[in-house]
Simulated scan of single mutants.
Amino acid sequence: MIRHIVANALTLMIVLLIGLGGVIAWGKQEFSTAGPLQEAICLRIEPGATLRAVTRSLEDQGALAHPSIFRMGAQYTERANQLRFGSYLLPAAASMDEILDVVTRGGASTCGSEVLYRVGIARADTIVRELDPATQRFLEVVSFDAGEEPPADYSTYTEQADLRYRITLAEGVTSWQVVDALNQAEFLAGEVAEIPAEGTLAPDSYEVQRGADRAELIAEMQARQSRILAEMWEGRAEGLPLSSPEEALILASIVEKETGLADERRQVASVFVNRLNQGMRLQTDPTVIYGITGGQGVLGRGIRQSELNAETPYNTYRIDGLPPTPIANPGRASIAAALDPDETPFIFFVADGTGGHAFAETLAEHNRNVARWREIEAQQPQAQ
Rank of each mutant, 00 (worst) to 15 (best):
G260S: 09
L37K: 04
G321K: 10
A146Y: 02
V298I: 11
P47F: 14
A93T: 14
I303Q: 07
V298H: 03
I303P: 01
L64A: 06
V102H: 05
V6R: 15
D145C: 00
V208E: 04
T287M: 07
T312S: 13
F272S: 06
Y206K: 11
L169Y: 02
A333Q: 15
I289A: 05
A49P: 07
Q38P: 00
H4A: 14
A197C: 08
G239V: 01
T354F: 08
T168L: 00
L100A: 11
R301W: 07
A34N: 12
G302A: 06
K257L: 14
T174G: 07
S270I: 01
A351G: 10
N315F: 04
A53K: 12
S32K: 10
S32P: 00
Y317T: 10
R214E: 09
V102A: 11
L217C: 06
A197F: 13
R137Q: 15
T259L: 10
A262T: 13
T104Q: 07
M13F: 11
L240N: 01
S270F: 01
T284F: 05
L339D: 05
A383L: 13
N277Q: 14
Y317E: 06
T77Q: 10
G356Q: 02
E258I: 02
A161F: 10
R84W: 04
M96C: 08
V103R: 01
V192P: 00
G321W: 09
Y76I: 03
Q29H: 13
D145T: 07
R227H: 13
S32C: 06
P286Y: 04
R266A: 13
L229F: 12
G107R: 00
D180Q: 09
T316D: 11
S334L: 07
T168H: 01
G48T: 11
T11F: 14
T50A: 06
R281S: 06
F272A: 08
G106A: 09
E171Y: 12
E375W: 00
F187A: 04
V208D: 05
Y117H: 06
E246I: 00
A9D: 06
P47L: 15
I327A: 02
T33G: 15
Q384G: 13
R3I: 09
S109Q: 03
A383Y: 00
I14S: 13
K257E: 14
E159T: 15
N81Q: 13
R52Y: 10
W176D: 07
R368P: 00
C42N: 11
R79Y: 03
G120C: 07
R44H: 14
E375N: 04
T156R: 15
E207C: 00
E361P: 01
V141H: 10
R332I: 12
G21V: 04
T174Q: 05
A7S: 15
I45L: 14
E114F: 08
L182D: 02
A219W: 13
G356P: 05
A269C: 08
S334F: 10
A248R: 14
N8W: 11
S243A: 15
